[in-house]
C-alpha cells in the first residue's frame, strides 16, 4: 500500500486511437488546439443559424445555373440541378453535426453506465458486460448500420442507433478500466467507510472524477462518428436526397466530376475533413491535458 500512482496512459483500455490519426497527435497542443476549437464553435454556429446564413433555399432548383462555377451569385457554384452548393453545405452542417452528436451522446451515456457497473460490481456482472462489449466489437459498425437500415428503413434514425451501439464498447471499455482504478483509490474507499451507497458514490463522486477522460474519448469519437455517418450517406443508407447532407452531396457530385465540375463533391468533402480533423485535435488536446493533470 505504498503511494501507488497509476499511469492511465499505460493502462489497458486507454483512449482508443484509430490508426492513421497518428499525425494529429503532433498537432494537438498550442495554437492549433485553439484554432481547432474555434473551427468547432464556428461549425456549431453555422449549423444553428443555417437558415439565416444560407443565401438560397438549399432545395431551390434553378436549371439555368446547372453546374455553374464559382461566381458572385453562387460563391461555391451550383450542382447538376442548379442548387446553390454553399447553401447546401451550410444546411448540411445540421445533419452532419446532429447525427454524431446523438451517437456520441447515447454511446457516452450507455458506455458510462455499463463501464461503471462492470467496474463497481465486478464478478459475474463484470464478466457478462465485458463479454457483451467484446461481442459488439466483433461486428463492424458499418455492417450493423446497413443491417439496421435494411430493417428500419433509411434516414438518420437507423444509422444513429446502429452507430451508438457500435461506439458504446469503445467508451464502455475505457470507463471500465479507469473506473476500476478510481474505485481502488482511498478517497472512494473512504466514502464507502462513511456509509454511502454504491449508487451515490458512483453518481456523485466517481463519475464526475472520470468525466474529463471520458469526454476526451467522446470528442475523438465525434470525429469518427461524423465520418462513419457521412460514409453511410455517401453509400445511400443515411440521409436521403433531396435533404442536404455532406456524405450524400459527395455521392451526387461524383457525376459532375466527369463534367469537369469539382466543387459539388469537393466542397462537402472538405467540410468533412475539416470537422473530423478539428474534433481529433480537440479530443487529443483534452486527453493530454487530463493526463498532465493526473501527473
Amino acid at each position: 500500500m505504498s503511494t501507488l500512482r497509476i499511469d492511465r496512459e499505460a493502462a489497458d483500455g486507454a483512449i482508443v486511437r484509430r490508426p492513421g490519426f497518428g499525425l494529429l497527435r503532433a498537432l494537438r497542443q498550442g495554437p492549433l488546439f485553439a484554432g481547432a476549437a474555434a473551427v468547432l464553435v464556428l461549425l456549431v454556429l453555422i449549423a444553428v443559424f443555417a437558415p439565416l446564413i444560407a443565401p438560397y433555399d438549399p432545395d431551390a432548383v434553378d436549371l439555368t445555373a446547372t453546374l455553374a462555377g464559382s461566381s458572385s451569385e453562387h460563391l461555391l457554384g451550383a450542382d447538376q440541378s442548379g442548387r446553390d452548393i454553399l447553401s447546401r453545405v451550410i444546411h448540411g452542417a445540421r445533419t452532419g453535426l446532429l447525427g454524431p452528436l446523438l451517437v456520441v451522446g447515447i454511446s457516452t451515456f450507455l458506455g458510462i453506465a455499463i463501464g461503471v457497473a462492470a467496474a463497481w460490481r465486478g464478478g459475474w456482472i463484470d464478466a457478462m458486460l465485458s463479454r457483451s462489449m467484446d461481442l459488439i466489437f466483433a461486428f463492424p459498425g458499418m455492417l450493423v448500420a446497413i443491417l439496421f437500415v435494411a430493417v428500419f428503413g433509411s434516414g438518420l434514425t437507423a444509422p444513429v442507433i446502429a452507430m451508438s451501439v457500435a461506439y458504446t464498447p469503445y467508451v464502455g471499455r475505457l470507463v471500465r478500466s479507469i473506473a476500476g482504478q478510481e474505485k481502488a483509490r482511498p478517497y472512494i474507499e473512504s466514502y464507502r467507510v462513511q456509509g454511502w451507497s454504491g449508487w451515490t458514490i458512483c453518481v456523485r463522486h466517481l463519475i464526475p472524477n472520470i468525466t474529463p477522460t471520458v469526454l476526451a474519448q467522446s470528442a475523438i469519437n465525434f470525429g469518427y462518428a461524423l465520418m462513419d455517418l457521412a460514409a453511410l450517406s455517401y453509400l445511400g443508407f443515411g440521409v436521403q436526397p433531396p435533404d442536404s447532407d455532406w456524405g450524400s452531396m459527395i455521392n451526387e457530385g461524383q457525376a459532375a466530376l466527369l463534367q469537369d465540375a469539382m466543387l459539388p463533391s469537393f466542397a462537402p468533402g472538405l467540410c468533412i475533413v475539416v470537422a473530423v480533423v478539428a474534433f481529433g485535435i480537440v479530443g487529443e488536446g483534452i486527453a493530454d491535458r487530463v493526463a498532465k493533470r493526473e501527473r
Binding site: T3, P186, Y187, E189, Y191, V193, G195
Partner: peptide, 17 residues
C-alpha cells in the same frame, strides 16, 4: 459507519480532489 471510521495512510489520495 458510526461504529468505526478509518483514516487512510496517504492524505494525498484519501480526499476527493
Amino acid at each position: 459507519a458510526r461504529e468505526m471510521q478509518m483514516v487512510f495512510q496517504d492524505p494525498y489520495l484519501s480526499l476527493d480532489p
